[in-house]
Nucleic acid binder design. Structure first.
Length: 818
DNA sequence: CAGTGAGCGAGCTTCCGCTTGACTT
């Protein structure tokens, strides 16, 4: 066994470092934190000055045992976790849990994984910075208190299993407030004027020039008056202005900017980006993917330079040191970059290739020269009018970094000025071919997408690179927020056109407001946010994290004791928790919309046990209220009086067919027709309010036709096996279990024997009958099922394997006792 | 697969940040 044991956080890092250090060193990984506050209960001893109750995490027992053993066999232990608050705490927890001795323990740090940096670190060991550790303990305890005291209030006042926390609650608030801005937004129209002119350039050659009026008009009358004046006006070039301009490359990727660009350029979700990056990291292709630093190592700068020279030449090189601007950045790692700059591409899946190329280009571009542009504006004066037209163009004089990469933006470009303008003389006359004044509307604020929410959180200093993706998942799993699309709606706009001395006035239609993969707040998300913001405005405020970060910095500097800081917070916070628990009303987000014209009873909307509903009447009245569920695309916040009333028009009878009544209604799976005990889904294109008798019969007959073709053949006694046509092609079924048919087999040629063989070849299919609770972060709580019920099978499974697996959670053991 | 909108119980749910793993629909 080597004399030295080095402990780092990540196994991939361990592997790399071991290569640098030689045979005297053994490098192991802690896999992140090894201990945390006790899982059960709050894990803080309030009677004893907030003493944290730490326990080795169940999935780390094995790691800790292995590390303990290795420590015993080593002379010196080097704690080489990251040089930030969490990393320092990891070193301290290791020190405590492994019962290390000061005389043979060293704490070392490095920010880049290069041989030089690591050897330098080994030569400059220090001791654990207990103030920094205390800052982490304060962070941890604060988050536990906030999360575990707020969540139970939600269970009691809104709905079980909900959650609140310093990060997630603010993330949801951002989305709820953006939705309100959108709902309250009213588009303002202005008239934008564009013209196309005939003229000649300096060489006398005929040219066409597009230009926009610098002024926009607030009303149609003003736009019309302007066009009238243009009828007899003279147009000429007033001046030509040419200005040099520069564009600089964006800094190398951090976690947040990588997530944004991968979303914009590759269409990846935030978690997808992280998964692909993780694979590239583990394969040694890129540096660590969870970082807030834009810094590149000297090694990376050197190899980038060499690469640029060989690719484009010396004049394309511009070595830059970027500095981090984001709030609360801890810079324990380098920026995300290729491990080897000379590898322009990698082997792997297409996702891996595309993400790698994005990282490579971004890194290379960051060390390349500015692009030089020339912006030209031709100002065109109009006789008798003070306003001017301007034609603008932009020419790239030197492409610089644009040779490889340009960062995308979320906003669509508004003006097109990338064209080269003709060279013209001042005073040159122009003849208008046409002048068009178009009504243009101001834009709604955009809804957040996953990546733009991450950017906003980072801007506010909320969350860390390792938590952006999980936070986005959490708020969706809790059903506070939903990712979805919004279809475009039609909007009319006015177009005034002056051509050949005549003005025409037309109405055109455009599609507007389409959105894809955006985050929408749910009614629960809205109610939870409103409730928390009312009672806990401090915690929900956008600068809460920034404020506590300052406090943590003071602890790290040794200016305050962490327990005093927590005490100050808790003394203020806890009484509000108690008071809210006792005195606040149950929250259902009720909105009273008006009175039902038929019955004269109150019409309102609120959150019911199974989701948002509309209600006519109240429970206090003698007559019971009538209920109707809201549709999926409706929300308590924005539903109108008329839309709510419409909900009560269903179920609706649409006539008779085969002497049985047909009824249209909306169920869990959307609109359907019910006839003679059977259900027929309504296609999306049919409006449940409008469907006619004839159309309903058509839908029923269509489905019957499909049903008829469903059975290909039946085999065995009493039709034991049925060969069927399904949504995914032919398959066969026995005892309600479905089996695949191998590709290329004609389903008509199957015999009973062949099917039995196939069943024998797919034995596991028989075990798939029962639904198992899905494990892991991808688990999505089902809306419809009661949470307790949905959990049962998962628990039963954990129980049965508890003996076999040493890693079984204590929860499972607790369940076994009962 | 397509009602529901509430009843005493009994007991569960939950945070943020570090880091990967294992197993089929």
């Amino acid at each position: 066994m080597p004399k030295n044991l080095v402990i780092v956080e990540s196994p991939a890092k361990a592997k790399t470092i071991e290569k640098f250090l030689g045979s005297d060193y053994h490098v192991m990984s802690s896999f992140g934190h090894i201990r945390d506050l006790a899982e059960k209960g709050i894990g803080i001893d309030f009677e004893n000055n907030y003493q944290p109750q730490y326990a080795v995490s169940t999935d780390k027992k094995k790691t800790v045992a292995e590390l303990k053993k290795a420590c015993k066999e080593s002379e010196v232990v080097w704690l080489a976790s990251d040089e930030d608050r969490e990393g320092e705490a990891i070193a301290w927890h290791l020190y405590e849990e492994l019962k290390l001795k000061p005389e043979n323990t060293r704490r070392i740090v490095f920010h880049e994984i290069t041989k030089e940096a690591i050897l330098h670190a080994i030569e400059n060991p220090r001791t654990i910075d207990i103030n920094l550790v205390d800052a982490q303990q304060a962070r941890r305890v604060l988050d536990r208190i906030v999360g575990f005291e707020l969540s139970p209030i939600l269970w009691r006042k809104i709905r079980p299993s909900l959650s609140a926390g310093r990060v997630q609650s603010v993330a949801v608030r951002l989305i709820v407030e953006r939705e309100r801005e959108i709902n309250q937004f009213t588009a303002e129209a202005t008239y934008r004027v564009n013209a196309i002119f005939d003229s000649v350039d300096v060489a006398g050659k005929a040219i066409e020039l597009k230009a926009e009026l610098q002024q926009r008009f607030a009303t149609k009358a003003e736009a019309m008056a302007f066009l009238e004046k243009c009828k007899d006006a003279q147009f000429s070039v007033d001046s030509i202005v040419t200005k040099p301009a520069k564009k600089s490359p964006a800094p190398p990727f951090t976690t947040s900017t990588l997530q944004q660009e991968a979303a914009r350029k590759l269409g990846f979700s935030v978690s997808q980006t992280m998964q692909v990056a993780q694979r590239l990291y583990e394969a040694g292709k890129i540096t660590y993917m969870r970082t807030d630093s834009v810094n590149l190592s000297d090694l990376a700068l050197g190899t980038s330079k060499a690469e640029i020279i060989s690719m484009a030449g010396q004049k394309y090189v511009h070595i830059r040191k970027f500095t981090t601007k984001s709030k609360g950045a801890q810079e324990a790692h380098e920026a995300i970059r290729p491990s080897y700059m000379n590898a322009h591409t990698v082997e792997g899946t297409s996702q891996e290739k595309r993400l790698y190329e994005l990282i490579w280009k971004r890194t290379i571009a960051s060390q390349m020269a500015d692009a030089e542009l020339e912006k030209t504006s031709i100002y065109i004066s109009i006789s008798g009018v003070k306003h001017q037209f301007v034609a603008s163009g932009e020419v790239i004089v030197f492409d610089g970094f644009l040779k490889v990469y340009l960062e995308s933006t979320d906003d669509e470009p508004d003006t097109e000025n990338d064209s080269l303008l003709p060279k013209m003389h001042q005073g040159e006359k122009l003849l208008p071919i046409e002048i068009i004044a178009q009504e243009r509307f101001s834009q709604k604020p955009p809804r957040y997408a996953e990546a733009s929410l991450v950017r906003k959180l980072e801007e506010l200093g909320i969350g860390r690179p390792s938590t952006y993706a999980p936070t986005i998942s959490t708020i969706q799993n809790r059903l506070y927020v939903e990712k979805g699309d919004r279809e475009a709606s039609k909007r009319d706009y006015n177009v005034l056109k002056l051509k050949a001395g005549k003005i025409t006035d037309k109405i055109k239609a455009e599609n507007t407001g389409a959105e894809k993969s955006k985050l929408f707040p749910t009614d629960i998300g809205t109610v939870v946010t409103d409730f928390l913001t009312e009672y806990f405005p401090d915690v929900l405020s956008y600068n809460f994290t920034a404020d506590v970060e300052k406090e943590f910095d003071n602890i790290a500097d040794g200016d305050i004791k962490w327990t005093e800081s927590i005490d100050k917070f808790y003394k203020k916070f806890h009484p509000i928790v108690e008071d809210t628990m006792k005195n606040s009303e149950r929250q259902v987000g009720e909105r009273i919309l008006g009175v039902d014209p038929k019955s004269g009873r109150q019409l309102s909307v609120k959150i019911g046990k199974y989701g948002p509903l509309a209600q006519i009447g109240t429970v206090e009245e003698e007559e019971k209220p009538v209920f109707a569920s809201l549709r999926r695309d409706q929300s308590i916040e924005s539903i109108t009086y008329e839309q709510a009333l419409d909900l009560f028009k269903l179920p609706r009878q649409v006539g008779e067919f085969e002497e049985k009544v047909m009824t249209v209604a909306i169920g869990r799976f959307g609109p359907y027709i019910r006839h003679d005990g059977a259900f027929y889904s309504l296609p999306k294109t049919d409006d449940p309010m409008e469907v006619s008798t004839e159309r309903a019969i058509e839908i029923i007959e269509e489905k019957r036709e499909v049903e008829k073709n469903r059975i290909i053949q039946t085999l065995g006694a009493e039709n034991e096996i049925q060969v069927l046509n399904g949504r995914f092609g032919p398959y066969f079924t026995r005892d309600k279990v479905n089996y695949k048919i191998p590709k290329g087999t004609d389903p008509l040629s199957l015999t009973l024997e062949a099917c039995l063989d196939l069943i024998a070849a797919q034995p596991e299919a028989a075990n798939k009958k029962k639904p198992f609770g899905r494990k892991g972060a991808a688990a999505k709580p089902e809306k419809e099922k009661a949470p307790a019920k949905a959990k049962t099978p998962a628990k039963a499974k954990a129980k049965s394997t508890a003996k076999a697996k040493t890693t079984a959670k204590p929860k499972a053991k607790a369940a076994a006792k009962k």
